[in-house]
Amino acid sequence: MKRAYNFNAGPAALPEEVLQEAQNSLLNFNNTGMSVMELSHRSKDYEAVHNEAKALLTSLLSIPEDYEILFLQGGASLQFSMIPMNLLQENKVGYYALTGAWSEKALKEASKIGEAAVTVSSKESNYTYIPDLKEIKVPEDAAYLHVTSNNTIFGTQWHAYPEGLTVPLIADMSSDILSTPIDVKQFDVIYAGAQKNLGPSGVTVVIIKKELIKANSSLPTMMSYETHASNNSLFNTPPTFAIYLLSLVLKWVEKQGGLEGIAAINDKKAKALYDVIDNSNGFYKGHAEKDSRSKMNVTFTLQSDEITKDFLQQAKEAGFVGLNGHRSVGGCRASIYNAVPLEHVQALASFMENFQQKNS
């Protein structure tokens, strides 16, 4: 079977090697005579999978001992509520950097819990850029500063983060975690839905400083970080198969040379597409400003709606999937997460060049 050129924004491509490994053990995991999906989450066989995933993540990201790793459900969208419920104290304000639709949603949910405000925004330009770090002001009444590291819809990405803060820095890294080395110590909370770079949909990773995890009897039990931290994320039945696939993806990342190896490949993939856009004499126009471009989501428009429709139709016929742009931007979007092979990106770059030659 020929694999599709999968450029979906999420759920997104998974490494073929990972899918094959999961297929091979689907009916009989570790000689148990059962699938991972059938194992009790209290069994030693599943516990080994669970703890291995945590250990692999700790190793790849160099997570310090004073951080806790949680495997939760509800996607990043549930974290929009859990963060203020656990960290937004009375008489304090949660500050948000608005750089796209997901940061808007995070702000909206926080506003339902307590006081939340915008500290910096690029909304006036339809989110074409990441604001300069010098523009970020964190007032004394701040409980935390929240950023969204990569913006899937608009194709922008933070390439540096605020330093020297006196309040926790929280980052939604759903769409670029594990794509390049980061200093976890720079953040107090990192959270990410798995369905772009970590694995399949169904599990959300939260990396949080232990000192921020506090019991709060007024919170619903499942909404408290303390509940999950004190139970090794096994308070309730976790998404066992998704965590198993997460562990396989982490092993695959190790084989690629860790985050340094993955980053080098991602740089090549992004350059292949942005070079086509930049050398097209305006045939393709990137949405994001160059210094804010995402290496995960390449967004671009063509010269008219008609030619865009032709591009997308011919791309579909050629086997390219998921290139439609979001309605907020229009045009096209190629999501080139870790698992998208370089060869698939190069094939798209060639298609774009050929399409331009035929339609110029």
Rank of each mutant, 00 (worst) to 15 (best):
Y96M: 01
M82N: 10
T58S: 14
E52P: 02
K251N: 13
S218V: 08
H228E: 09
I113P: 02
A192G: 13
E47G: 02
S81Y: 15
S122H: 09
E68W: 02
P139L: 04
E306N: 12
Q157N: 05
F311M: 01
E343I: 03
L165C: 06
S201E: 11
V203D: 02
G330Y: 02
A76R: 10
K214N: 04
G74H: 05
V253R: 05
N51M: 10
V118Y: 07
I277E: 14
G286C: 14
K92E: 09
Y274T: 05
A347V: 00
R42G: 01
K214S: 01
F241A: 02
I83H: 06
S179V: 10
H287C: 02
Y284D: 11
S280N: 10
I208R: 04
A242W: 11
G33W: 05
D275C: 05
S217C: 01
P11I: 11
S335W: 02
V184N: 00
N28Y: 11
S122R: 01
K92N: 04
P341L: 00
I69Q: 05
M223S: 14
V93Q: 10
Q157E: 15
Y129E: 15
M296V: 12
E47C: 02
V167F: 09
M222H: 09
V276R: 13
N338Q: 05
L219E: 05
L178A: 10
A315N: 06
S149E: 10
V205C: 10
Q357R: 13
I113R: 10
F311P: 00
Y46W: 11
S350K: 15
I336Y: 09
N279P: 08
L250R: 12
L98N: 02
A116Y: 11
I208H: 01
T240D: 04
P168G: 08
P64H: 00
V340D: 07
I262E: 00
P84F: 14
S280A: 06
K92I: 07
P139Q: 06
T204F: 10
L259T: 02
S125L: 04
S360D: 08
K123S: 11
D172H: 08
G75F: 08
F235P: 04
D176T: 08
E52S: 12
M82L: 14
K209R: 15
G33Q: 08
A101M: 04
Y337Q: 13
L273C: 00
E211S: 13
A192D: 12
P341W: 01
M34N: 08
G331Q: 01
Y274V: 06
S179T: 15
H326Y: 14
L246D: 04
P11Q: 07
D267M: 06
V329C: 05
Y337H: 13
L19S: 07
N231W: 10
I177V: 14
N338H: 00
Q23A: 06
K196D: 11
T128E: 11
D45K: 08
M37C: 02
Y225C: 01
D310N: 12
A76S: 15
E353N: 06
K54W: 03
F80Q: 09
T204N: 12
I130F: 00
T166D: 14
G10K: 12
L133R: 08
N24C: 04
T148P: 01
G331K: 00
R3F: 08
S335C: 13
V203P: 02
P181K: 00
L70W: 06
M37H: 13
F154H: 14
G114K: 12
S122F: 03
L234S: 13
V167S: 14
